[in-house]
């Protein structure tokens, strides 16, 4: 029984990390209606940037993250404004192909620069755990990840609800032309949205790097996790992303608890499949109006 409770705790904590991993994809999918296939690679790029700064200056990975956040914001802004905005409104495929190309370029650049070796970001927290009872404990690094994931989503929710820019992003997402007529430069607005999504990617990159190992081709693994979170929770919904993360994390670890760790991924996909059959727009997603 205690082992099972430990599994539930770990699943929930993992879910918080997954929410941080998925939120950037969810935001851009919900707002710009763009499937950013490079999202996973951009997270891994952040992990490598943190690795470089940590290595060069001997900083703690979390401190290095503070330097990587503005860099990723600028990268996101530029990618959207000068590359992806050019193909918006041309249908579904062109942005998809551009993002896919970006993904390939990123993976191979990382491979060239950093070699295929597995890396990880080390912190003193990595080996610590917080005891609850004699047999139950919380792994500290997962706990930090959980808190950060929840905080990121809360912060975004407040941003979209209460700031002028947040409202403008939602308006542009609702009706691009009307938003322009109301004085919103929607191209720049989307670029800022992507910049913010890349801030979440930087944070997720730090969580991935400190919790797991990564190498240049790890991006797609986390892209698929992001998709899982978004499909379960519903695209564009903040609370949905959090719940989607929890469900995916729990499903994976509970599955692995009963059937062995080989079945971890399978159980994640099983839940995904069930949600797709019962509620294709996701638990918190809005049904798209029929065109």
């Amino acid at each position: 029984m205690e082992v099972f409770i430990q599994t539930l705790i770990n699943g929930l904590l993992l879910g918080g990390i997954y929410a941080a991993v998925g939120i950037g994809l969810s935001m851009i999918f919900g707002i710009v209606r763009l499937v950013n296939l490079a999202h996973g690679d951009l997270m891994i790029l952040s992990s490598y940037l943190i690795l470089v700064i940590t290595g060069s200056f001997g900083l703690n990975p979390y401190l290095s993250l503070a330097a990587v956040i503005p860099v990723m914001f600028i990268i996101g802004f530029i990618i959207q404004k000068y590359i992806l905005n050019r193909v918006l409104g041309m249908g579904m495929e062109p942005p998809l192909i551009v993002a896919f190309g970006l993904s390939i370029i990123l993976q191979n650049t990382l491979l060239l620069v950093f070699s295929p070796d597995a890396q990880s970001l080390e912190t003193p927290l990595s080996i610590k755990s917080i005891p609850i009872t004699e047999t139950l404990s919380i792994p500290a690094i997962y706990f930090v990840g959980f808190l950060v994931g929840v905080a990121v989503i809360l912060a975004l929710q407040l941003f979209f609800q209460f700031t002028y820019l947040g409202r403008a992003i939602r308006a542009a997402s609702d009706d691009d032309e009307a938003a322009q007529l109301m004085g919103i430069n929607t191209g720049t607005t989307y670029a800022v949205a992507m910049g913010i999504a890349m801030i979440t990617a930087a944070i997720a990159g730090a969580l991935i790097g400190t919790t797991f190992t990564f190498f240049p081709h790890t991006g797609p693994t986390y892209l698929i996790i992001s998709f899982g979170v978004v499909i379960i929770g519903g695209a564009g919904s903040m609370i949905g992303t959090l719940v989607g993360g929890f469900i995916l994390g729990l499903a994976q670890l509970v599955g692995s608890h009963f059937f062995g760790s080989g079945y971890q991924l399978l159980f994640g996909y099983l839940i995904l499949f069930i949600v797709l059959v019962i509620r294709p727009q996701g638990i918190f997603g809005r049904k798209e109006r029929a065109a």
Binding site: A168, R170, A171, D174, D175, A178, L181, M182, I184
Partner: peptide
């Protein structure tokens, strides 16, 4: 300013939020 045909109210924004967007 143009008041577009079909009104083009932002569906996921409240009345107040729609008005505030007007003053962007």
């Amino acid at each position: 300013s143009l008041v577009p045909e079909g009104r083009r109210i932002f569906p996921r924004l409240t009345v107040l939020e729609n008005l505030l967007i007007g003053a962007y």
